[in-house]
């Protein structure tokens, strides 16, 4: 099939970018979205042009590196799918596809579709860890955790840190990302110890890093390739309320 692509091109962080039009010919429906871009890039290289820069790593939907906004939705319209696992069979011959970077002040564009998501790491470094000694691997089994708590925590821990929540949020907020980390740790006995200071520090670092505030649009949940629920933001809010008592 043949497609028309409108792609955000931007030389570097300083220069202004703009949308450019490309034609993708003979696209195989079994290609992934990134493979389709690889083919387009081959063409560009053959013609002596600068290929489109985009982030990718595992291409298995687990690393959270790919970060394209496809037709106005981070990772594209396919639910619970990273863009590397989005296949061209979901498009029709003759479709126009708009490809833009993840947009937020906290995610400055490095080049074309590549954005700098270090701000998420900074938020994690501020409090997204457990600093008490939890022992060796076998010690994990000596601390019994109810199945519900383990499942709840693991559901939140599914976050791959791709930043689609931020890209989808009209406020550029990272509250789902922070909520997932806060909820995951606060549900476990090892994480409860520092729960109060963690929720405060992480939400304050979030603002410092240039993310916006959450106003409950829930666009984050809809865009999340791992289906992280906004119930974890409610959990974060509960943890914050608890922290006020301390």
């Amino acid at each position: 099939m043949n497609l028309t692509l409108f792609v955000w091109r931007q030389k570097n962080a300083k220069e202004k970018g703009r949308m450019e039009r490309y034609e993708a010919h003979d696209v195989d429906p079994d290609m992934s979205f990134l493979e389709m871009l690889d083919v387009v890039n081959q063409d560009l290289i053959h013609n002596g042009k600068e290929p489109i820069a985009f982030d990718h790593d595992c291409r298995e939907g687990i690393c959270g590196t790919c970060s394209l906004t496809v037709n106005g939705i981070p990772h594209g319209e396919q639910k619970r799918t990273t863009v590397c696992q989005l296949h061209m069979r979901h498009f029709k011959d003759g479709d126009s596809i708009y490809i833009e970077p993840f947009r937020a002040r906290a995610f400055p564009v490095v080049k074309d579709l590549v954005v700098d998501r270090q701000a998420l790491d900074t938020v994690i470094q501020s409090g997204g860890y457990v600093s008490v000694s939890t022992g060796e691997a076998q010690d994990g089994n000596t601390l019994l955790i109810p199945r519900h708590d383990a499942e709840y925590s693991m559901d939140a821990a599914e976050c791959i840190g791709c930043g689609a929540c931020v890209a989808a949020c009209p406020n550029g907020s990272a509250m789902l990302f922070v909520g997932a980390k806060v909820a995951s740790l606060a549900q476990l006995p090892q994480g409860k110890v520092e729960a109060a200071q963690r929720v405060c520090v992480m939400t304050e670092t979030m603002l410092d890093q240039g993310f916006g505030n959450c106003s409950n649009h829930y666009e984050c949940e809809a865009a999340c390739p791992k289906g992280i629920s906004v119930k974890f933001i409610a959990k974060l809010n509960r943890e914050y309320l608890k922290s006020l008592k301390e």
């Binding site: 955000w8 002040r105 550029g172 916006g212 809809a222």
Partner: peptide, 16 residues
């Protein structure tokens, strides 16, 4: 919040 989202998407689809 507006400052946190300085650049708008060329195409944006509302999902939720």
């Amino acid at each position: 919040n507006r400052r946190a989202k300085p650049e708008a998407y060329a195409v944006r689809k509302r999902q939720a």
